[in-house]
């Protein structure tokens, strides 16, 4: 027999991920370089993807996975775009 329901396990795990994501905010705020912030936001994005997937399992909402996939795509695009922008400010974009 199991001590708790599977849904609760997922929700607790999601909560832990949220706590870690909040800790990551420190780096996003403090920096000191643009790239540090970008990296922190990128990790935050990955955390968000995981949290969405955990919630999809915990709340049994399949379509959260769609959102997670889109989020992963936008996360990638953001990192590439901003890192390109910081290098070529006033250049290509």
């Amino acid at each position: 027999m199991t001590p708790a329901s599977l849904e609760d396990v997922f929700l607790v795990a999601a909560g832990l991920f949220v706590v870690l994501a909040i800790a990551m905010f420190y780096r996003a705020v403090v920096g000191p370089t643009t790239q540090d912030r970008l990296l922190a936001v990128n990790v935050l994005g990955t955390n968000t993807v995981v949290i969405l997937a955990l919630l999809a399992a915990g709340l049994d909402q399949r379509w959260f996975l769609d959102v997670a996939l889109i989020y992963a795509l936008l996360n990638f695009l953001m990192s590439v775009a901003i890192s390109k922008f910081t290098v070529e400010r006033g250049g290509v974009l």
Binding site: L39, N42, A72, S79, V80, S83, T86
Partner: peptide
């Protein structure tokens, strides 16, 4: 599929960030 996608995109993003740090 989601995991596979994360595995392809994230190292690329990390490389982009590191490269931008190096360029600046």
């Amino acid at each position: 599929l989601l995991l596979f996608f994360v595995f392809i995109t994230n190292p690329t993003a990390a490389h982009a960030i590191a490269r931008s740090a190096a360029e600046t």
